[in-house]
Amino acid sequence: MTQMADAVHPTSHAAVPHGDAHAHGHHPNLEHHFDSLTQQFDAGKLGMWLFLATEVLLFGGLFCAYAIFRRNHPEVFMYAHQFLDTTWGAINTVVLLVSSFTMAWAVTASQRGQRHLTSILLALTFLGGVGFMVIKAVEYSHKFHDGLMWGVHYDPAKHEHGHGHNGAHGAAATAAHGAADHAAPADHGTAGAAATAAPAASTHPEATTSVHAPETSGQPAATGAEAADLPPERAPLEPSQVALAPAGPAGLHTGGHDLHGPRPDNVHWFFGVYFTMTGLHGLHVLAGMAVIGWLFVRSVRGDFSADYFTPVDLGGLYWHLVDLIWIFLFPLLYLIH
């Protein structure tokens, strides 16, 4: 890139002698503390690379968290990733890759001084960002609807029975499970008593059938009686859910027997990781779109030329990083085997 910059504006470099940046006739985009446009371009480029390094480290913390949770509890990831929609994820990957392509093309166009083409390509890149965010919004709203959320907001009832998206059924099941999930840990006395009364292993057959029945029958048949039956049967399972030191793959939730297999403990971790990683990435996409929008305005205004295209180049670098992070997120979250 350095050589390219030199090649692109050798004249301006020669025209501005050392230490005389205030001489008349220097390039309007040359700031006073640089000796030449090349020096300015190189400084900007190094600065952007360093900034990208900080971004990688920012996400690095999350990748670390991902690695630790996945290493310690692979079953959570094996189970939970099935709820992500690989098709939408793949489409989004393509959308971002194409936008990266248009961005790279825009950089080249701006280096050649093709102002009109640069503007069009920047607009296309921006649209790529819009498309990505819209698809992300669709995915998020499905997750919210199905209770596939992080930490305290994770609600298995919504997705284990809610595949038919039947409003009435979903509400009843939610109420029942909500009572079990949230009341039991707080109401320790009750849960403990239930546990001693019925020390059922996690593979309690009755629990399996009774919870499973509505699912297999496909009927929205969660009557009040069934819902009332659920809490005592689920109660013995609660202590494992609130265990201080989660003990590996023990304690599979029979309640989770559906298309996706038995539900392990702490599935919410996966969605915590999913939402923090994709959420932070989404914020970066928005920031990138703001940058590209600004570049578009400047490009239309005619700020860039073959002599001065630094902002397009640096904005492009940032957009590629945003793309690159998604390239890592997609397989790590969607394509687990």
Partner: peptide, 22 residues
């Protein structure tokens, strides 16, 4: 990122650092 996760933990209950949520 650590502080962001801490905020997410406190405000959204994300559960990374919360032993009650594993």
């Amino acid at each position: 990122i650590t502080l962001l996760l801490l905020l997410a933990e406190r405000l959204l209950g994300i559960g990374f650092f919360d032993s009650e949520l594993g």
